[in-house]
Simulated scan of single mutants.
Amino acid sequence: MELRQLYYFVRVAKKEHVTQAAEELHVAQSAVSRQIHQLEEELGVKLFVQKGRNLQLTPVGTLFLKRAEVILADLERAVIEIHEFLDPEKGEIRLGFPHSLGISLIPQVVASFRKHHPNVKFRFRQGMYPSLIRDLIKGDIDLAFISPFPKEHEQVCGEVLLTEELYAILPPGHPLSKEEQIKLSQLKDETFVLFSEGYSLRPIVWDACLQAGFEPNIGFEGEETDTIRGLVAAGMGVSLLPELALHHTGPLQPAKVRISEPSVTRTIGLIRRSNEKLPLVAKVFHGFLVRYFQEKMEE
Results as ranks from 00 to 15, higher is better:
64 F>V: 03
177 S>H: 05
247 H>Y: 12
195 F>G: 00
159 E>N: 14
13 A>C: 14
201 L>F: 02
140 D>S: 12
171 P>S: 04
214 F>T: 06
13 A>G: 08
190 E>S: 13
131 S>K: 06
164 E>S: 13
118 P>I: 01
137 I>W: 07
151 K>Q: 11
86 L>D: 00
102 G>S: 15
277 K>F: 07
118 P>R: 11
24 E>S: 12
110 V>S: 07
57 L>F: 05
59 P>F: 01
73 A>P: 00
183 K>Y: 11
93 I>L: 15
174 H>G: 07
283 K>A: 14
130 P>W: 02
157 C>T: 13
195 F>P: 00
122 F>G: 09
254 P>H: 07
223 E>H: 12
199 Y>G: 01
260 S>G: 14
210 L>S: 13
249 T>I: 04
8 Y>I: 01
259 I>V: 14
4 R>P: 09
61 G>W: 04
42 E>R: 15
6 L>I: 07
110 V>A: 13
290 V>C: 04
233 A>M: 10
110 V>D: 08
110 V>K: 11
162 L>A: 13
124 F>G: 03
106 I>H: 04
277 K>L: 15
252 L>D: 10
191 T>G: 13
42 E>F: 07
162 L>P: 04
109 V>Y: 12
260 S>E: 12
106 I>G: 07
77 R>C: 05
80 I>S: 14
50 Q>Y: 04
169 I>D: 03
239 S>P: 01
140 D>A: 15
26 H>M: 10
100 S>E: 14
81 E>W: 06
206 W>F: 12
247 H>L: 15
293 F>V: 00
234 A>F: 07
205 V>A: 14
206 W>S: 05
76 E>W: 02
207 D>F: 15
239 S>Q: 08
165 E>C: 01
5 Q>D: 11
246 L>A: 05
132 L>S: 02
116 H>F: 15
171 P>C: 03
195 F>N: 01
127 G>P: 10
190 E>W: 14
299 E>T: 08
279 P>D: 02
76 E>I: 03
265 T>I: 04
1 M>D: 06
6 L>V: 09
237 G>I: 00
54 N>S: 09
107 P>F: 12
163 T>M: 14
20 Q>L: 11
44 G>L: 05
23 E>C: 10
43 L>A: 05
242 P>M: 05
186 Q>L: 10
260 S>P: 01
178 K>I: 06
146 I>M: 10
176 L>E: 03
265 T>Q: 14
2 E>F: 15
125 R>L: 14
120 V>P: 00
92 E>N: 12
269 G>Q: 01
97 F>C: 05
69 E>R: 11
196 S>K: 14
150 P>G: 10
130 P>E: 09
41 E>R: 11
19 T>G: 10
179 E>G: 11
43 L>D: 00
257 V>N: 04
183 K>S: 06
126 Q>V: 06
207 D>G: 03
87 D>M: 00
85 F>C: 04
